[in-house]
Nucleic acid binder design. Structure first.
Lengths: 178, 178
DNA sequence: TTAACCATGTAAAAAGTTACATGATTGT
DNA sequence: ACAATCATGTAACTTTTTACATGGTTAA
């Protein structure tokens, strides 16, 4: 489960609450996540139980108490051990490709429409990615090497989308040539 | 659930058994799947119950009976309706990117090792993809337009991997320049 | 007054993965 | 003798998603 390690990762920057983690996840494109907090709160409890983080409760007047989680030395060891473990092949799930695979029952107009919808989605994602890289809302602080990596992570996403748009161009011209 | 529609897709080519579907899935890179038949058999039962496919049982002497599934007209309608529905953004899950995001506790050697392992994985995938495109083991028959699409689907995967390798080159040179 | 933000969570369902189970046949 | 292929499935578990639940504050 990489959610566990991703949380440890964010906590290695600074102590955070579940609510703050949720926002971090939402603004980090290359970390896949549904947007729901369900897993985060659960995982934090589990991390606390296994001694990888500690919990600090801060009472507030008109809001629920903030529960700030701090990473422990054991948590850092766990994170580092995981970070250097053999990486998996990235695994991409594209419903569009599967739709296209069986678009044979559709008319040319319907297929063109499908491609247009998809292209629009990709363009939007690309714009969002570029903006987030520029604004650097979620970014490691005070560390040049880590900052370089994060820059590259965003560049990875951006190049993925750009590659997809190039491919779409080829797809269109191939269709036109038929 | 796109597994349901993917199965309908394969069955739209020709009637197949669960066992044959499994092989099709395994040889189709751009369809994400664990390789286990668990879901396939379950989904076939469900498709049969909802009238999207019919089941033909063929007895054999020394093997379990083959259960050949045929798509119905309603199944084809379902498939076509789904194929033209608004596509999602592809979502990629790359543990490598997340590992790199928190590789800050690692030494330069450890990071280089991580990158090497990843690059090797990608290169292997690329080779496999190219081979499968060449051999065309799973490919629509007797339909030029569908064949063009399938060629493009494989090209999509190939360009993804090639893009990843280019990005890795930039990552390396950025690291060296630090 | 309506939406967004702050801040916590829970319940239930769907989807995906790993491991188990059977047993004959065919090729190296 | 061993592995792979043919052919079916089940059980248990993990992961992910969707929806529900509470309730005050702040800004347009």
């Amino acid at each position: 489960m990489s959610l566990k390690h991703t949380i440890l990762g964010f906590l290695s920057w600074k102590p955070l609450t579940g609510y703050e983690l949720k926002k971090y996840f939402m603004e980090t494109e290359f970390i896949p996540w549904s947007g729901n907090n369900n897993q985060i709160y659960k995982t934090l409890v589990e991390l606390n139980n296994t001694g990888l983080v500690t919990k600090e409760v801060i009472q507030q007047e008109n809001y629920p108490a903030r529960k700030v989680y701090h990473i422990t030395t054991r948590g850092i060891d766990e994170l580092n051990g995981w970070a250097k473990s053999k990486p998996d092949v990235p695994h991409t799930k594209s419903t569009f490709l599967i739709q296209l695979a069986w678009s044979d029952g559709l008319s040319n107009e319907e297929i063109e429409n499908l491609i247009n919808l998809y292209q629009y989605e990709i363009e939007m994602q690309l714009i969002m990615c570029k903006e987030r890289l520029e604004r650097k809302t979620v970014f490691p602080e005070k560390n040049k090497r880590a900052e370089f990596f994060w820059e590259m992570l965003w560049q990875n996403r951006i190049s993925n989308y750009q590659n997809e748009l190039n491919w779409l161009t080829k797809l269109r011209s191939g269709l036109a040539a038929e």
